[in-house]
Simulated scan of single mutants.
Amino acid sequence: MTITKTSNFNEDDVRDLRLAFDPDGTLESDLREIWTVIKDGVDEDVRRFWRPFAGDATPYHLGQDRIDDLVRRDIDYTELKFTGGLSQKLVGKMVRRGRASSMDRATEIAFSAGLLRSYHARHARLSAALTGDPATLSRLTHSLYTLYALETSVLLNGASLQRADQELADSAEHRSKLEAIDRSQCWLEMTIDGTIVTANRNLLSLMGYTMTEVAGRHHSMLCSPEDRASQDYLDLWANLRAGRFVQREYRRRTKGGAYVHLQATYNPIFDQHGSVVKIVKWATDVTAMRQAEQTESARAQQFHQEAETRRKAHEDTLSKLAEIVDDIGAVTRQTSMLALNASIEAARAGERGKSFAVVANEVKLLSSRIRDATATAANVLTYGQQSIRL
């Protein structure tokens, strides 16, 4: 069981305890007298006290070694209670036991019940030893249960100190978390009808308002007229009044008329009866991110348009080249026909047409080379046109 070593609150002062529980100053001597009678049974008292905390079947999962250690320490503590006198050291031990008992309500009950059983067992031994001396038994019984009342009071105070310190620590942690959020985010607190109660500096700075300008006015002042009149805005407040939180991105308008984008969560706050009593909005400014997205989108669109323009220009160029290739092909075919006709005429002319036949043959070879080049160019153009379509 973990207990707090230091406290922000004060433990009981031994002087106050003396005044309350031992005004006659006889308690310490009576307790020492009681110890001589009950000490032989203290070991069993203490073991019986710690028995409910031992083993894996309990919520505490204390092993036997741990229980044995607690028993030894508890025996020393019990002896100190009866023989060491009422001191601030003893009060400190009682307070620490009270802190340890405050882990949960079941532990508090187990501590209280175990302590009462221990005192009853000691009273039984005291009664058995003093059956023939009722006056002494009455006096010592009073002192025994005075110690019980004192110890119970200090234990309860220790438990209260532990809870108070824990609540203080939880409160400090909660406050620290809220301060961290306040530094990094925008927030706005409103009534359930949308009236602004307060806002942090981040939101006011982002929207361009002062607290005086927004306090007491409706949240719709932060919206454009079209957003304010939209069904989406009406649904937002209907959901919030019904106790449903809403989270999404919203567009809001600043005092200067500029638009900002907020990733916001609107949270209904409930009272102890489950009724919505206020609305708190937490938001992060994502305007820069949205503007960057719009800029990138515009760039992408411009790039696409430029690429389409280049594609069309390239396609037009290829189309014109294809026409030229077709014209060259037609000329080649005509040249081939002329070479063929020239060859025929040279053959008819016999010896006189030999020189003419040489020219006709050269024309024919040139026509063949032009035809091959034209076919190659046509294939290249076809591939280029197909790649553009892809």
Rank of each mutant, 00 (worst) to 15 (best):
T2H: 11
T2N: 12
K5T: 11
T6D: 12
S7I: 06
D12H: 14
D12P: 15
D12R: 12
V14L: 01
R15D: 14
L17A: 08
R18M: 06
P23L: 03
D24K: 08
L27K: 03
D30W: 06
L31I: 04
R32A: 13
R32Y: 02
W35D: 04
W35A: 09
V37D: 10
G41L: 12
G41A: 15
F49K: 00
F53N: 13
A54E: 15
G55I: 07
A57C: 13
L62S: 09
G63D: 15
D69S: 15
R72H: 09
D76Y: 13
Y77V: 00
T78H: 04
E79P: 04
F82Q: 01
T83I: 05
T83W: 02
G84K: 03
G84S: 05
L86V: 02
S87Q: 00
L90S: 09
L90I: 05
G92N: 14
S102V: 02
M103G: 06
E108H: 08
I109L: 11
A110I: 08
S112C: 08
S112M: 10
A113G: 06
L116T: 07
L116S: 09
Y119N: 00
A129V: 01
T131Q: 13
T136W: 00
L137H: 03
T141E: 03
H142L: 13
L144V: 01
T146F: 02
V154L: 01
L155Y: 10
A159T: 04
R163C: 00
A164M: 05
Q166V: 05
L168N: 06
D170A: 13
A180H: 01
I192D: 00
I192T: 15
G194T: 01
T195Q: 07
T195W: 01
I196A: 00
I196P: 00
N202P: 00
L204T: 06
M207E: 01
G208I: 09
Y209Q: 02
E213T: 04
V214P: 01
A229N: 10
L234H: 09
D235V: 05
V246D: 02
T254S: 13
K255I: 07
A258Q: 09
Y259M: 10
V260M: 12
L262V: 10
Y266Q: 04
P268S: 03
D271Q: 01
V277Q: 09
V280K: 03
W282A: 06
E293S: 11
S297Q: 13
S297E: 12
R299V: 12
Q302M: 09
F303H: 15
F303W: 14
Q305F: 07
E306D: 14
R310S: 07
K312R: 15
H314V: 12
E315C: 11
D316G: 04
S319C: 09
L321E: 08
L321C: 07
I324T: 11
D326N: 12
G329E: 05
V331N: 11
T332S: 14
Q334N: 14
I344G: 07
A346T: 00
A347C: 04
A349L: 14
E351G: 12
K354H: 10
F356Q: 10
V363P: 05
T374D: 14
A375C: 08
V380P: 01
T382G: 06
Q385D: 10
I388Y: 02
R389I: 06
L390D: 14
